[in-house]
Design a protein around this nucleic acid. Structure first.
Length: 181
DNA sequence: TAGGCCATCTGGTCCT
DNA sequence: AGGACCAGATGGCCTA
């Protein structure tokens, strides 16, 4: 902000410094010069204000557009996530958490399918599943939002939960992201 | 009415 | 120098 003032002062307002010596030599015109200076200063200040205001408005506009782009991306993300017809729109944080968990569920689906393909006829054991996320890896946000697992997002917390995988898990993760769990 | 969510404004910092 | 990004502040709207 101070940069704006210095820019103006060093360009359009430098008349203040350049006229000082002349005024001291011509005392008759001192009062007139002072009035002139005050008017010039007032003009400069309003000009500075206008420049500052204009830059601010432009910055606000860019910021608005940036946030709109961000919201468009979130809408696109909501669009590719499974949803029920009568469901209310996911909030921003829910969308991000659900997407996180959804990706995890899909990768688990692929992994289990690969295991079954590699060992046909061999029933999948719980020991084949990855270690469930420890409770310490999950945290509640201060706002009371649903828990979020940083290590293995949305991964079931108990071995029994793996019975949900893979298809049923998607519903569970949705509820998880929405705080229904 | 309190709390959650959201849009917007704003000033600071970093990057090109 | 100007734009992008970020975080804090503020006010409006909605719901339990």
């Amino acid at each position: 902000m101070d940069r704006v003032f210095s820019d103006i002062d060093s360009n359009s307002c430098d008349v203040f410094t350049h006229t000082d010596d002349e005024e001291s030599r011509n005392s008759v015109c001192a009062e007139q010069s002072q009035k002139k200076r005050r008017r010039s200063r007032a003009r400069c200040e309003t000009a500075v204000h206008a420049v500052k205001k204009n830059r601010r408005l432009k910055a606000n506009d860019r910021e608005r557009n940036r946030m709109h782009n961000l919201n468009d991306a979130l809408d696109a993300l909501r669009g590719v996530l499974p949803a029920f017809p009568d469901e209310t729109k996911l909030t921003k944080i829910e969308t991000l958490r659900f997407a996180h968990n959804y990706i995890w569920a899909l990768s688990e689906t692929i992994r289990i399918a690969d295991l079954q393909a590699a060992r046909p006829g061999d029933p999948l054991r719980l020991t084949d599943a990855p270690s469930p996320a420890s409770d310490s890896a999950c945290s509640w946000s201060s706002s009371g939002s649903p828990p979020y697992c940083s290590s293995s997002p949305g991964s079931p917390s108990t071995p029994e939960d793996y019975s949900l995988l893979p298809q049923d898990a998607l519903f569970g993760f949705r509820c998880f992201a929405s705080g229904v769990y």
